[in-house]
Simulated scan of single mutants.
Amino acid sequence: MGKSLMYLLQTDEKPNRRRNLFEEAKKLDILVKDKNGEAYMVPNTAFDVGMLDLTHPLTAGWFKQILQEMVDDGVRGWMADFGEGLPMDATLYSGEDPISAHNRYAELWAQINREFVEEWKINSVGKEKEDPEETLVFFMRAGFRDSPKWGMLFWEGDQMVSWQANDGIKSAVIGLLSSGLSGYAFNHSDIGGYCAINFPIIKYRRSEELLLRWMELNAFTIVFRTHEGNKPSCNTQFYSNDKTLTHFARFAKVYKAWKFYRIQLVKEAAENGLPVCRHLFLHYPDDDKVHRLSYQQFLLGTEILVVPVLDKGKKDVKAYFPTGETCPWQHIWTGRLYKKPGCEVWVEAPLGYPAVFVKVGSIVGETFLENLRNLNIL
């Protein structure tokens, strides 16, 4: 997995650099400019960067050539990071108002990346053209109205490595569901979050429990993907010990077990825009209780109900079974049936056994359970 950026850093002091993309872009005059006509150096954490002017006619071709070189080296996927940071006082080649162009910039960023993917498909031959494993994919975090038209996958940016609702594991669910209602059908978060803080007076470090619960959550999203975070040494990683590796392997299998349904939901999203992960009110709009839910639970399509553990130290969750549903819900781990619509029930959910339910009599549910058995998860 690679990473592509519209931000370019001066690399003169980097001893092992092969190319200085910043200087190349500067010579081509394809960087966003400040009011004085100089390359606009945008503050980015501990350093300043130049930003590609996506309205310049030379930018797309130059950047696609970089992507081509990356793909020629064997890369088949990349993070098309950033896209949201066009300065409000920048000067663009197009001459347009930077405030008006700010949101459109994210769309152009998605469009250039997607155009490269489509052009690569057209020009591919042999195994690259026939083998689905050779398909290119990119994911991004910035977006505006037309971004889903161009973006292949999205992720929710950099959550804190915490249990918080404002910026942590709970916010990952809120963002997942709200973005799904806004046309972003294929979205996900970094397993374990990203932002750690290690100051003397305040510390946010990814705990083992948080990482394991985030694995359980993301096994039921469109992408099951880890990230070491901004401070890897402060965070528990999936490879930290036997417990984390075993848990990761277990939920990679859970993720695999509903692949057949994920493919179906992706096709459905392409046809009608419905997200893969859905807030319950999309299918139970007349249930007032459903309208008060935020991060507590969600649906995969219509057939799987997920009630993740999102609080430290908790080993049970409160599941709500909506009114308007005629089929009972079956707990995947115990087989217990919940037949009464409109009721709340406390369900045990120790590590490794998040509260997940399938509709009784559902072909999707039966296939999912059978796949779990075949993978020795049940």
Rank of each mutant, 00 (worst) to 15 (best):
T11F: 07
R17F: 08
K26L: 15
K27I: 11
L28A: 15
L31S: 03
M41I: 08
T45P: 00
A46M: 11
G50N: 07
L52F: 07
L58D: 14
A60H: 09
K64N: 04
V71F: 05
M79K: 13
E84G: 04
A90P: 04
T91R: 15
S94T: 10
S100E: 14
A101T: 09
Y105E: 05
E115I: 07
E133H: 11
F139E: 01
R141D: 11
R145G: 01
R145M: 12
P148C: 04
K149Y: 11
L153D: 07
V161D: 01
W163I: 01
A165T: 10
I169Y: 04
I174L: 11
S179R: 14
G180W: 06
S182F: 11
G183R: 02
S189W: 09
I191N: 00
A196D: 02
A196N: 02
F199R: 10
P200D: 10
K203M: 11
E209H: 00
R213W: 06
N218H: 15
F224R: 00
G229R: 02
T244C: 06
T246G: 06
R250N: 07
F251Y: 13
F251S: 01
A252I: 03
K253A: 09
K256G: 04
K256W: 11
A257N: 03
F260P: 09
V266M: 09
A269K: 04
C277P: 02
R278N: 08
L293S: 02
S294N: 10
Y295Q: 05
Q297C: 03
G301H: 01
V307T: 12
V309P: 00
D316V: 08
A319T: 06
C327F: 10
P328K: 05
K339P: 08
E344T: 14
V345F: 07
A349V: 05
F357Y: 05
G361D: 07
S362F: 11
S362G: 04
L369G: 02
